[in-house]
């Protein structure tokens, strides 16, 4: 009978190996998707524009209403907190700079990533998982249709286009939300607020937020598909892995965000 320490080491080791295994699988999915995107047409296995567009509609256009609400809320919230904090130093007139930088560099990309992970990443996991337990993935394989080309490449492209686009949109909405509150609270015109925002932001700030959103889009897709592909044990398994995919995607987004900010900002 092995001791408790040995058993702990055994468990940790197994978890580590399976985590590495999943990361390897994710890398394989990414590599194969890029491969099919590059040479699919020559090999008569094209990644179809129609399915990319369908995915993009769902991931992007479908998320617009709820994203607008969330972005607006974040903008107002940041303005409220910003003014409260800066008032302690009598510096509330500088609040716009803080709001503009935090929203464009951080919060818009983050809230968009979180929303898309919850809405579309989980849907992807559920879809792939359901297809797996219904043998639909086997059916694709035996039909001579590569499942990665058919199921992974389209959402990957759609996410890569739509998540940065949504982030841009949430920049606009959250800045507008913050502006409404700031102009009322500090008694300045909305036009003056917009002027301050434009002064505060540089192109590199915009690039910072958008690059992160592009990374998030890849993470959300891969985490969704990996979890979907690992589904076992029927409908309950699909539910479990869908939840797991959301948790993993959010963790991946936050950790990546921190590392990216640390590496780029100093």
């Amino acid at each position: 009978m092995p001791g408790p320490l040995t058993r702990l080491a055994d468990r940790v080791g197994r978890k580590a190996v399976s985590a590495l295994d999943e990361m390897g699988f994710a890398a394989h999915l990414l590599g194969r998707s890029l491969y099919w995107l590059a040479v699919g047409h020559q090999r008569r296995q094209p990644v179809r524009m129609s399915s990319i567009v369908a995915q993009a509609m769902d991931i992007g256009i479908g998320a617009l209403p709820i994203l607008s609400v969330l972005a607006f809320t974040i903008g107002v919230m940041l303005a409220v907190q910003g003014i409260y904090t800066l008032r302690m130093f009598g510096a509330e007139s500088r609040v716009t700079t803080g709001i503009a930088l935090s929203l464009v560099r951080e919060f818009s990309a983050l809230i968009t990533g979180i929303l898309v992970a919850g809405r579309s990443g989980s849907a992807l996991a559920a879809r792939v998982g359901t297809m797996k337990i219904n043998q639909e993935i086997d059916a694709l394989t035996v039909m001579g249709i590569d499942p990665i080309r058919y199921l992974v490449a389209p959402p990957l492209v759609a996410m890569l286009v739509m998540v940065p686009a949504l982030t841009l949109w949430s920049h606009l909405v959250s800045l507008a939300g913050a502006g409404l509150y700031v102009s009322a609270a500090l008694d300045i015109s909305f036009g003056a607020y917009v002027g301050q925002v434009i002064d505060a932001l540089r192109l590199s700030d915009l690039a910072h937020g958008l690059s992160k959103s592009a990374i998030f889009s890849v993470l959300i897709t891969l985490v969704g598909v990996v979890n979907g592909a690992l589904v076992e044990g029927g409908a309950e398994g699909v539910g479990r892995m869908t939840t797991r995919s959301v948790v993993h995607a959010l963790s991946a987004i936050l950790v990546t965000d921190m590392i990216f900010a640390y590496a780029v900002t100093r």
Binding site: N134, E136, V142, M143, G144
Partner: peptide, 30 residues
């Protein structure tokens, strides 16, 4: 293998029809 699969047809136990496509679209996919 992809080329060989064009000469194979498989009817799975549960059908394995793609649930997002109609029956006709399923049959048309290959």
């Amino acid at each position: 293998i992809l080329d060989l699969r064009r000469h194979m047809g498989v009817a799975f136990q549960g059908g394995a029809l793609f649930s997002s496509l109609t029956v006709a679209e399923n049959i048309m996919l290959p």
